[in-house]
Every structure is written in C-alpha cells, then in structure tokens.
C-alpha cells in the first residue's frame, strides 16, 4: 500500500497510511463479521481523559484521509510535565492523533483534521497560529531515527539556526553542547562533532534526534514509537532519558510495547480502531482496566 502511494504522482511520499487506517470490521474475503472480543461496543471514553493542569487538549477530534475516517471524536488532555503513553493495536490511530498535536498532518494533502485543539489554551488550528512556531514549541521524535545528512553538530544546530535562537557562534556551541548533554549523547560524541550524524549507531542516532528536538527548546515533545527500531540496551537508555526530561518537558509517547508504557508513563491512553477507549493513570490501566477491550489488549488476547 505504501508503495502504491509512493509511486502515485502528486502524493506525499512514505506516509505510513496503512498503519493508521482502521481495520475493516468486515472481513474483505469471507464477508463475515469479525467475532468475539472485536465486537465490543465503544461508547465514549472511559476513565479520566481530562485533567486540570492540561498543557494540550483536544476535543471532538476527527481525522480523515480522503474519504476514510481514521479518528473518531477523541477527547483528551495532556497534563503539564507528565508523560502520557498512547497504546493500541496497529492501525488504531494513535500515531495519527500524535501528529494532530503539532500539525504534522498538514504535510499530507489529503488529510483533514477537525475539532478543537489547544496548547496552553491557544487554538493550534486557529488562523492566527503559525504551524512553524507551533512545531518549534511542540517538537517531535520519529519512529525511525532520521538524522539529516549533515555533521552531528549541524544536526543539533539545525533548529537553532533556522529559528535564529543563537546570536553568535559561541552561544550556538553552548546550545549544541547543552542539548547533547541533556540527550545523554555528549560524552560519546564530543570528539566527533564534525562527523556525519548518519554514521552513529541506531540508538545514538535516535538520541541525536532527541537532542535536535530539545535544542529548539520546545514545551512538548511528541515521540512516535521512538524505540521500535532499537535494540533493548539502546531502548533502556532512551527510557532513562525520558524520565530525566520529564521535569522540563511534557511528553506524549506512542508505543507498541506495553512494558514501555508501564515503565515510563504516568497516564496511559488506549486507542482502538480510531476511537479512544480508555484513559487512566498508568497503574490503573495495567492493573485494573475498566473497559473490556483494554483488558483484552493488555492481557495479550490481540494486538
């Protein structure tokens, strides 16, 4: 599917469309309805989707890819300085929702987003809001490490240069160093700052991307399955890093791994077929889920 889109003229490339569209409830081949636990009704979200100290909030969020609806009426708050994990089977809409929060979906021409979405109470889809500024405030780390084909230094300095955040070379040097230290990468690369970022290992590349994101001093960092392409040791390093970052940033992380969600997050949101099924404190979700679907998922009956 992705390949077909890549080759179609005029379409943005490599959009992970497939993983975002909900699975049909009717089997395409047999025409039968999927049975058992898949058939449980979803009537609104259970748990506590809303919080008092919301950094970002979404109400009535619908997302469409062309004619297909990928997200159905999601209401969700992301609290200040918390890590919220979004879990669910593939194609459930969690990544699409994440991309709503910094308007990354704008780069896909057929994608349409409705509902109210705010950052610190400001409408992020409003006419006055600038997506460039929004994305500087709401940074993003992607599934696959995607360093630019530049040196490590230039990768980290990229955003600062774009936005004019450093007025001279030494300020920029300091910023790069500070960002790399925060991302826990400085010790490993301090002698190789001029070497290409693409030469690092996968885990280092992902930390480089985190350093790059925090160099523009965002308020929120969105992470889209940041460790899915990494080995367990690199994953552990990044998870530790997230815990340290929590004091300064609000983090929303999409993950496939329930253990990771349980380890790093304070709240967990469970998505299913484009709908937000349950949101609650992480402990609660994993020990005593309210919704049947959530329980089925975390007990490994599907996923």
């Amino acid at each position: 599917m992705t390949d077909v889109i890549n080759t179609m003229p005029g379409m943005p490339r490599a959009v992970p469309l497939e993983s975002e569209t909900p699975k049909p409830a009717v089997d395409a081949i047999t025409g039968e309805k999927h049975r058992s636990e898949f058939d449980v009704e979803i009537n609104g979200t259970v748990g506590k989707p809303l919080v008092d100290n919301a950094k970002m909030s979404s109400r009535n969020c619908d997302v469409f890819y062309g004619d297909k609806q990928a997200i159905f009426g999601v209401d969700l708050d992301i609290g200040n300085n918390e890590i919220i994990a979004m879990i669910g089977p593939s194609g459930c809409g969690k990544s699409t929702f994440l991309r709503v929060l910094n308007r990354m979906n704008d780069t896909i021409s057929i994608c349409r987003v409705t509902g109210e979405h705010t950052l610190d109470g400001e409408d992020i889809y409003g006419k006055k809001t600038d997506p460039v500024l929004l994305r500087a405030r709401v940074g993003m780390v992607f599934q696959k490490p995607n360093p630019f084909p530049k040196s490590i230094y230039d990768n980290v300095a990229y955003g600062a240069r774009l936005h004019g955040l450093a007025s001279n070379r030494s300020e920029l040097d300091d910023l790069v160093e500070a960002s790399l230290i925060k991302a826990g990468l400085f010790k490993e690369v301090k002698d190789d700052l001029q070497k290409p970022g693409t030469g690092l290992s996968g885990g280092q590349q992902q930390r480089l991307c985190i350093a790059r994101a925090i160099a523009v001093d965002p308020e929120v960092i969105l992470m889209d399955e940041p460790t899915s392409a990494l080995d367990p040791i690199a994953t552990a390093t990044i998870e530790e890093l997230m815990d340290e970052l929590r004091s300064n940033y609000t983090i929303a992380i999409v993950t496939h791994s329930m253990q990771q969600a349980a380890r790093v997050s304070q709240r967990t949101a469970y998505f299913h077929m484009g709908k937000l099924v349950e949101v609650n404190d992480t402990d609660k979700v994993f020990t005593n889920p309210e919704h049947q679907l959530t329980e089925n998922y975390i007990t490994g009956r599907f996923g």
Partner: peptide
C-alpha cells in the same frame, strides 16, 4: 533558558522567513 523567551525570538524572525 525559558520557553517563552525562545518563542518570542522565533516569532520575531517569522516574517522574514515567510
């Protein structure tokens, strides 16, 4: 470094960038 500070810097440069 405070967030609001850099937001202002970015906002100031936007016109030129656009």
């Amino acid at each position: 470094m405070s967030n609001s500070n850099s937001t202002e810097i970015i906002r100031a440069g936007l016109k030129k960038r656009y």
